[in-house]
Design a protein around this nucleic acid. Structure first.
Lengths: 186, 186
DNA sequence: ACCTGAACACCGTTCAAGT
DNA sequence: ACCTGAACACCGTTCAAGT
């Protein structure tokens, strides 16, 4: 007598993501996911290799959404405005979904799949490339992403502890960085 | 009959740090520290509040060493050269002690004490302040630290996967950032 | 075909009992 | 004063047994 499924892969990922959204990756335990979908923990291994694979599924979903928002925001005419809009969208997403965003830049088990990484890289490379040209696009994109991800890691961790206006610091970095990459001319 | 100590606080921190250096924070378990200093895990709680406190002790030690190296490197005449030297020292330290460095920018339990944070902030603020002036020092320092820490988080995580020269990307960011903050005009 | 309880090897932490 | 074994409440994961 074959047993009927009590859950589905989609329900698994949805439950896992809800836990990450609420309490962060470290709260994503197999037992908690199992409880959320109405089975016992060992049953999850019928649907997913291990915990790291489940984390990866959530990370890929989040990465896809982030990429969509970056794409939409960067649909501007002038390259410097497109880059500014992309970076603003990046920060908006990170602040709106802090725990899910943190997942994307977490080096531990899980991490984003290479496919998801490539898709989001493509958007940034296109926008930065239009601003600085093909010769410099790779180092320029790395500079921009390093700054933005570093800034948000610190902002979300509450690492800006010396007072002052965090929005002002973001704007300052954005202005100087986009300016240095060629946003001044034209 | 009072029992004689089998270990010391210093030995505890030294053992904990050796584990972090070798295998990263996630390998720092109470049992492994206990084994390294020759006692059982429960005994550690006579010397340290809990695991997070032990992590913090290691982080503070690492932060102090990093600050020393930043201070030494930034002892230059021209502000732009001092900032460049400080950032090069930052990257050198991170690459020489990747696991210990990662501890400093890890938001999880532990983290650096506020005292250690203030000491390293002071160095960066002084150097950046000499370059951009008092008005802009806070946002400028945040821009620089965000970029450098973001870059190293990605470099150490192996997140630069599109090929190209990582050293070139670092130099590109350094040049454009220091340039944008006033390093052009001498 | 899927779900389960029981088990294993780990965690951090507490605490009464030893010396 | 310090150390210990035993215990508790967790983890992830495996697997034989159920339906």
């Amino acid at each position: 007598v074959p047993a009927r499924p009590h859950t589905s892969n989609a329900a698994l990922v949805a439950a896992a993501r809800a836990i990450v959204r609420a309490d962060g990756v470290e709260a994503l335990t197999m037992q908690r996911v199992a409880q959320a979908v109405g089975v016992r923990a060992p049953s999850l291994y019928k649907r997913v290799e291990d915990r790291a694979a489940l984390v990866r599924l959530v990370a890929d979903e989040v990465a896809a959404e982030l990429t969509d928002e970056l794409d939409a925001a960067a649909a501007r005419q002038r390259p410097d405005q497109a880059l500014r809009a992309l970076l603003e969208a990046f920060r908006r997403f990170a602040r709106a979904h802090p725990k899910e965003y943190a997942l994307l830049f977490d080096p531990r088990p899980g991490g984003t799949s290479t496919a998801a990484r490539e898709r989001s890289s493509a958007t940034v490379l296109r926008v930065v490339g239009e601003l600085v040209g093909a010769d410099e696009v790779l180092p320029a994109a790395r500079t921009v992403v390093a700054w933005a991800s570093g800034f948000l890691a610190m902002e979300l961790a509450g690492a800006f502890q010396l007072g002052g206006d965090v929005d002002e610091a973001w704007r300052y970095g954005l202005d100087h960085l986009v300016g240095a990459l060629g946003g001044r001319q034209r």
